[in-house]
């Protein structure tokens, strides 16, 4: 009898100990919310929605996408950073997460302390395009023209401190040229003025540039990335033209509030890996000019740390001030 109750107690203790572990390994038990700190229909939103069905399949639970736009992604990111660290709130964000720490002095969160990396989702090279009427149509010609007449060529961007602006600053620093930066409220109106010939060049996403490249309204100059992009196979890379340091990439990644249990992060990371490498998703992403990744949390953490350092240097050198 004593033995029996001892066994029972032991079993109960073992069960009690095992219970939380099994609860966690059965994650997720309810829908997972992905916070997108940009508006619906934007680049990050489209990317996440493109693999949402595959992610739901991998997790076995519905995935809810919540758009929390504003403040250059800072508002939505702050919401995610303050969420309960149980894995049911995930942040999906682009390069802004690694740029903002150097851009803003008073972020409402501490990127690496309040958030933990889950997975790098995809990378997107950017393309330098020019109005069809420009005289300098290659990287070398642009540099030569800018050196001959400093402060004359005009480059549009999606805003002060936007990725399309930072790409330009990186190019200016690598090639030591002086051109006029013309910021717009988003790449949309900037592209309009590029097509209209009111500005001469801009860095832009590949998928957004495609219609204008196809219609001949703008010309491609060069793309970033280690190899030519399957979406625009005829366009040379900066690296093959001899400028390997002009390498800005848009990197999309997923984060959770720090303190989220490691096994939950692992389950999420595996699910993201599976989702972005789903054959249908890969096809869609390549069509948009993106490369799917799906890394481990540690790999993404390393990339994020080095990206933060890289953009800090570019931003400090260019003296871009955003209060």
């Amino acid at each position: 009898m004593k033995l029996k109750s001892g066994f029972l107690a032991g079993a109960l203790i073992a069960f009690a100990l095992a219970a939380p572990a099994s609860a966690q390994s059965s994650f997720p038990e309810k829908p997972v919310t992905i916070i997108v700190p940009f508006g619906a229909g934007g680049g990050t939103d489209n990317l996440i929605r493109s693999f949402q069905p595959a992610l739901e399949k991998a997790l076995g639970k519905p995935v809810v996408i919540e758009n929390r736009p504003g403040g250059g992604s800072t508002i939505g990111t702050a919401v995610a950073a303050r969420a309960k660290a149980d894995g049911y709130t995930v942040l999906a964000v682009d390069t802004a997460i690694t740029v903002n720490p150097s851009l803003y002095s008073d972020l409402p969160y501490d990127t690496l302390k309040d958030l933990a990396p889950v997975s790098m989702l995809a990378t997107g090279p950017v393309i330098l395009i020019g109005n069809a009427g420009v005289e300098a149509k290659t990287v070398d010609d642009i540099i030569a023209s800018a050196k001959a007449a400093p402060g004359v060529l005009t480059f549009a961007s999606g805003g002060n401190g936007a990725s399309t602006h930072l790409a330009l600053e990186l190019m200016k620093q690598v090639t030591d040229i002086d051109v006029i930066h013309v910021p717009y409220k988003g790449t949309g109106p900037a592209t309009t003025d590029l097509v209209g010939g009111h500005v001469q060049y801009m860095f832009n996403g590949i998928s957004a540039s495609r219609p204008h490249l196809d219609s001949g309204a703008v010309i491609p100059v060069a793309v970033t990335g280690d190899e030519r992009n399957p979406a625009v196979p005829d366009v040379p890379t900066f690296a093959e033209l001899g400028y390997p340091d002009i390498d800005p990439m848009t990197i999309w990644g997923a984060w959770v509030p720090s303190g989220t249990p490691d096994d939950v992060v692992g389950i999420l990371s595996d699910a993201f890996h599976e989702a972005v490498n789903d054959p249908d998703v890969v096809g869609t992403l390549n069509e948009l000019g993106f490369f799917p990744v799906g890394s481990t949390p540690a790999e993404y953490g390393e990339t994020a740390t080095s990206e933060i350092a890289k953009w800090k240097q570019v931003i400090d050198t260019a003296d871009i001030v955003v209060e």
């Binding site: 736009p69 403040g71 250059g72 800072t74 002060n160 871009i320 001030v321 955003v322």
Partner: peptide, 20 residues
């Protein structure tokens, strides 16, 4: 909101919700 040209925050009183 954030000034397009300079990136300075104008009349936001340090509130991120007014940045746009």
């Amino acid at each position: 909101g954030i000034d397009v040209n300079s990136g300075a925050q104008r009349l936001t009183f340090g509130n991120w919700n007014l940045a746009d």
